[in-house]
């Protein structure tokens, strides 16, 4: 009987999905520290590339648009996602309700990061047809039309993944949905900086992801109630 139980236990362990073994446990963090810093772009900053609006100009051409796939501001990288990849325990994590707007035929924000399991409202205030086409692999891909009368589409992202989103009606539109595994993530702002708060003391792997430049990671040690400064550097491969 004992042997059978053991076999059962081993079988259970083997068949449990890996992700649930690495599950994140949320709770109160009293003496948390902070990780902050910037993501620098190595090399000459590319000049902003104008996006040519070729369709539905009366709506889409109202605002000038630049190519969002690589934005460097003051030598720092905008729209990169910095996250801790190996944290098991920390501040509370609950699904969020977040919003991505398509106002003026452009995804705003260009990179939307949120906790996995969250619902994303995708808005269409433009009064024209858009479609939201996801190129996901871990999550099941979708391609939904969003005609004028459908002001909001809601999607739920159940698995951690950086998902490219495109509109086939307006070829220039591209955006990203970043579903993070834990609540420690931050999208670099217009100055290329990021901040993670309430991090329990310890040493972690900090990773930065950028749609064009890929991934870079480094170790960082956080002390109680102190701020750890981190600088990343990314370059074109």
């Amino acid at each position: 009987m004992k042997k059978a139980m053991l076999v059962f236990l081993v079988a259970a362990l083997v068949t449990l999905p890996l992700s649930s073994l690495l599950a994140y446990e949320g709770g109160a963090v009293s003496d948390g520290g902070t990780i902050s810093g910037v993501v620098k772009f190595k090399g000459a900053a590319p000049a902003p590339k104008k996006v040519e609006v070729t369709k539905d100009k009366e709506v889409c051409a109202k605002t000038a648009k630049n190519d969002p796939t690589l934005i460097v501001s003051g030598g720092n990288l905008v729209n990169a996602v910095v996250s801790i990849t190996d944290i098991k325990k920390g501040k509370k994590m609950a699904p969020q309700k977040v919003t991505m707007d398509q106002n003026g035929c452009e995804y705003k924000p260009h990179v939307l990061a949120f906790i996995v399991g969250s619902s994303v409202d995708i808005l269409n205030p433009d009064g024209i047809l858009h479609n939201v086409h996801s190129y996901s692999k871990a999550n099941s891909p979708f391609n939904m039309a969003q005609p004028k009368f459908k002001k909001t589409i809601t999607v739920k992202i159940d698995k951690p993944e950086a998902i490219s989103v495109k509109c086939d009606v307006h070829g220039w539109m591209s955006g990203w949905l970043f579903a993070a595994e834990n609540p420690y993530f931050s999208v670099t702002d217009n100055s290329g900086s990021f901040k993670l708060t309430d991090v329990p003391p310890g040493t972690y792997t900090l990773e930065v992801w950028h749609e064009t430049l890929g991934k870079v990671s480094q170790k960082v040690t956080v002390k109680a109630k102190q701020e750890a400064k981190v600088t990343f550097e990314m370059e074109k491969k």
Partner: peptide, 24 residues
Amino acid sequence: SKEYFNCFSCHKQGDKNPEGPQEG
């Protein structure tokens, strides 16, 4: 129609071509 599905935003119809670049 444009108010709803706006099919001809992408689909050709005879000689009537959609707006924008051909690959769309």
